[in-house]
Each structure stands twice: as C-alpha cells, then as structure tokens.
Amino acid sequence: MAEFIERLKKQPKEGFFFDSITFGRDENHHTMPIISFYKGLRSLFDGYMIDDHARFRPANALRSHFAQFSQKLGEEFRPKEDLVNFFAYDRLYNTQFSVDIESAIDFFKLNAEYYPLSPNVWDSLGEAYMVNGDYQQALTCYEKSIALNSSNANALSRIEQIKSKLN
C-alpha cells in the first residue's frame, strides 16, 4: 500500500484527488470503515463550511461561496434557510456591531431567491422592508407569505397595519 501511495504522489492524475493517513495501534479492521467514511466525507466536503464572520460580509459573498462549492462538486449546495435568516436578522437588529438595513435586506432577498416557497422567508423580508419604511414592498412580501401559508398570523396582522398606514 505504501508503494502504491508513493506512485500516486509521483505521477498524479488530473482530476483525481487522494489522501492517505496512517493510524495508530488504537485502530483495527473493525474501526477503520467508520473512520475512513468520516475522513472521506470531511475531505470531499472540504470548503463547505463558512467562517464565523460571514454574517458581516455582503450577501453576495455568501452566494459566491456556495456557488464555488457547488461548482467543485457538480451539485447545487445552498446555505440553510435559517442560517441566512439569522445573518439577516443580525444585520437588521444587532446594535452591538452595527445595524445595516440594506445588508439585512440583501440577505433576506438571497434567502427568497434560494427558498421562494418558504412563507417564513417572505415574512422576514417583509419585516425588513417595514423597518426600512418601504411599506409597499413589505405589503408585497407579506402577501406572498400569506399565499404560501394562509394561517400566518404575523403576516395577516402586518398586512392590516400596512394598509392602514397606506390609506
């Protein structure tokens, strides 16, 4: 096996990636399948994880990160809906760092692009537009949320509030 690994290192093949690890005496043939599977997945998904500062970067940086990773594996990968929502709400309300309503809206719009059938996504985008004072856009978003979930009490309430302000 060691000779085979050396040959692969000396004569690499384009598009073929491999890695090898020598384990200690605490492992045996019974534990190797589990460890190999785990290590293989870690290697395959290298680059998937975003760092803790992603929420402070523009939404387009998040989009680019997942687009590059998707291209690497040949399959579409997206950040989870609740993660993007967290980033957006953090920008919308977190006064510890700095409120940035436009960045929040960009994250919410990205979430609506990724998850257009989620009533929560449209409800959240509507909230950001309300905070920004753009009641017409907020109304449109809340109406989309209601179209996807007619029992969304928050959206129904917000629609009433907005209509009273616009009249």
Rank of each mutant, 00 (worst) to 15 (best):
F45K: 01
Y48T: 00
I50P: 03
S43F: 12
F77Q: 00
A59K: 11
V84C: 12
H65R: 10
M49H: 06
F37P: 03
G40T: 07
A54D: 04
Q71T: 13
R57S: 04
N85I: 11
Q71G: 09
M32Y: 10
N85Y: 07
S43C: 03
F69M: 08
K80T: 12
L62Q: 05
F56D: 07
G47K: 13
N60S: 12
D46M: 13
T31L: 00
T31S: 09
N28S: 06
F86S: 14
R55L: 03
N85C: 05
E81A: 10
E76S: 13
T31D: 02
N60Y: 03
F77R: 00
L73D: 03
E75F: 10
H53V: 09
A67N: 02
S36E: 05
R42W: 02
G74T: 08
A54Q: 06
Q68F: 11
Y38H: 11
L41Y: 01
T31A: 04
F77P: 05
M49L: 15
A61V: 15
F77E: 02
F56K: 10
Y38W: 14
Q68R: 14
H53M: 12
S64K: 12
L83S: 08
F86E: 07
Y38S: 12
R78Y: 03
H65I: 10
R63G: 00
E75R: 11
R78P: 08
L73W: 01
R57E: 06
I50Q: 02
A59T: 08
A67Y: 05
D52N: 14
L73N: 08
A59R: 03
I35Y: 10
R63P: 02
N60I: 11
L62F: 12
R57N: 02
K72N: 14
N28A: 13
I34Y: 07
R55W: 06
D46H: 06
D52R: 14
L62M: 08
G40R: 08
H53G: 06
F66M: 04
F37D: 08
I34W: 13
G47I: 03
H29K: 02
A67T: 14
F69I: 01
H53Q: 01
K72L: 10
Y38A: 12
N28E: 15
A54T: 15
R63H: 00
A67E: 13
H53R: 04
I35F: 05
L41K: 00
F69K: 02
R55Y: 13
G47R: 10
S64E: 13
D46N: 14
R78L: 15
F77K: 05
T31M: 02
L73T: 11
G74I: 08
F56E: 09
Q68K: 11
L41R: 00
R55T: 09
K39G: 02
R42M: 10
Y48W: 12
Y48G: 00
H53P: 01
M49A: 15
N85H: 09
P58A: 15
M49K: 12
M32K: 06
I50K: 03
D52H: 13
S70H: 01
I35P: 01
R55V: 04
I35K: 10
